[in-house]
C-alpha cells in the first residue's frame, strides 16, 4: 500500500485560552502501531480524541483512507457518517472500561451491540459470534450472560476490546488501555493486544504515559509535551537514543525493577 491509513495535519485544539495540542502532524501506515507518550497534561488524550472524532479540532485536518482508495476528511463527515465509521472501520478503547461498556447489560449483549447495529438479525449467530470473541480475549464463554460489573478490572478491559473488535475495525484508538490495572494483569493484556494486532492486521494509535507499555506494543513513538510533538521516531530510537532534553529526562526516569 502506498498511502497512509490516517494522515493528521497541523491539528490544533484549544480550550479557551489553553492550547491542548498545537500543530500536530503525523501519518499512520497500515499495520502500524504508533505510540503517543508524554506526561499527564501533555495533550495526548485530547489529540487522540480529536483524531478519533470524539472531539472536534479547531484547526488542521484528519484524513482517513478507505480500502477503495477514497480519502475521507473527518471534519467534512456528517455526524451519522462519522458514527457509522466509528462503529465499523474504527474502534476506541477507553482507559476506564465503564466508559466503553454498557454496564447494565450482559457481556454477550455488549459484544453483540455493534453486530446488531450493523444489521445482524439472527440471535443464534450473534450469540455464537459473542462466544467466539469472549474466547479470543480469554474470557470463559460461560460468563456470556453475566453483567460486566461482575467481572474483574482486567476482564472488563478485555471485554471492552472484544466489544470493539467484533466489527473487525481496521483502526483502533487506545487511551491508556492498561492504565488502571495491576501489573500482573497488565502483562497479560499487553500480550493479548499484541496478538490481536498481529492476527487481524490492526493499525493502532495508543496513548500511554508508560514507556514500558509503549516499548512492548508500538513500533513508532511520538513524544508530546505542552501540546506539541517534542520528538518522534522508531520506538527503540526514541527510547535508546533520545535527542531532546525532555525525552532524555523522560527515558532516564523509567523505574528499573
Amino acid at each position: 500500500m502506498t498511502a497512509p491509513l490516517l494522515s493528521v495535519g497541523n491539528l490544533t485544539k484549544r480550550f479557551g485560552a489553553t492550547t491542548a495540542c498545537s500543530g500536530i502532524s503525523f501519518d499512520l501506515w497500515p499495520g502500524e502501531v504508533l505510540g503517543i507518550v508524554g506526561e499527564s497534561g501533555s495533550g495526548k488524550t485530547t489529540l487522540l480524541q480529536c483524531v478519533a472524532g470524539l472531539q472536534s479540532a479547531d484547526e488542521g485536518s484528519v484524513a482517513y483512507h478507505l480500502d477503495d482508495g477514497h480519502r475521507i476528511e473527518l471534519s467534512t463527515l456528517s455526524e451519522p457518517a462519522l458514527r457509522r465509521m466509528q462503529r465499523t472501520e474504527w474502534a476506541f478503547i477507553h482507559q476506564h472500561p465503564h466508559l466503553g461498556l454498557r454496564m447494565n447489560v450482559s457481556a454477550g449483549a455488549n459484544i453483540g451491540e455493534r453486530l446488531m447495529a450493523n444489521q445482524w438479525q439472527h440471535y443464534g449467530n450473534i450469540r455464537s459470534e459473542a462466544e467466539k470473541w469472549l474466547q479470543a480475549v480469554e474470557i470463559d464463554s460461560s460468563r456470556i450472560d453475566d453483567l460486566p460489573s461482575t467481572y474483574s478490572g482486567g476482564m472488563q478491559q478485555r471485554l471492552q476490546i472484544a466489544r470493539n473488535l467484533v466489527s473487525k475495525p481496521k483502526l483502533v484508538f487506545m487511551d491508556e488501555p492498561t492504565g488502571g490495572l495491576d501489573v500482573s494483569v497488565q502483562a497479560r493484556l499487553l500480550d493479548l493486544i499484541r496478538n490481536l494486532v498481529r492476527k487481524f492486521g490492526l493499525s493502532v494509535v495508543i496513548v500511554t504515559h508508560d514507556l514500558a507499555v509503549a516499548r512492548l506494543l508500538s513500533s513508532r513513538l511520538i513524544v508530546m509535551r505542552n501540546g506539541e510533538i517534542i520528538e518522534e521516531g522508531l520506538t527503540d530510537q526514541v527510547l535508546e537514543d533520545p535527542q531532546s532534553a525532555y525525552s532524555q529526562l523522560l527515558v532516564s526516569s523509567i523505574l528499573q525493577v
Binding site: L234, D236, Q237, E240, D241, Q243
Partner: peptide
C-alpha cells in the same frame, strides 16, 4: 551495532 540497526541516529 545499534547504529547499523537504526536504533542510534
Amino acid at each position: 551495532l545499534k547504529a547499523l540497526y537504526g536504533t542510534y541516529r
